[in-house]
């Protein structure tokens, strides 16, 4: 499974977005506010999920803010970190 699809599965399952399927998540939709409607508590949970599933530590929310723009942005961030 590629990173984007894995991320979508994580979002739906671990953040309990029960009414959505991974396929329904738009790669470019904002994760927070409008878009998926996630909030600050989801944001810190997502930091832990990225650590758990990809072994990548997001040290603070400044870093997180850019990465968490969309599935595309987060996948690019993870790929970048994995390539380091």
């Amino acid at each position: 499974m590629d990173i984007k699809n894995k991320l979508k599965k994580i979002l739906v399952e671990d953040l309990n977005l029960e009414e959505l399927t991974p396929e329904q998540i738009d790669d470019n939709a904002p994760l927070f506010g409008e878009g998926l409607g996630l909030d600050s508590l989801d944001a810190v949970e997502l930091v832990v999920l990225v650590q758990k599933h990809f072994g990548i530590e997001i040290k603070d929310m400044e870093e997180g803010r850019t990465a968490f723009q969309s599935v595309n942005a987060l996948a690019a961030y993870i790929e970048g970190r994995l390539a380091q």
Binding site: L41, D42, V44, E45, V48, Q51, K52, E57
Partner: peptide
């Protein structure tokens, strides 16, 4: 469980809250 399973760095903030 989140700590025991995956280490302190994976403590779940949602479960904590």
């Amino acid at each position: 469980d989140s700590i025991i399973g995956d280490g302190d760095i994976c403590a779940s903030p949602t479960h904590f809250a």
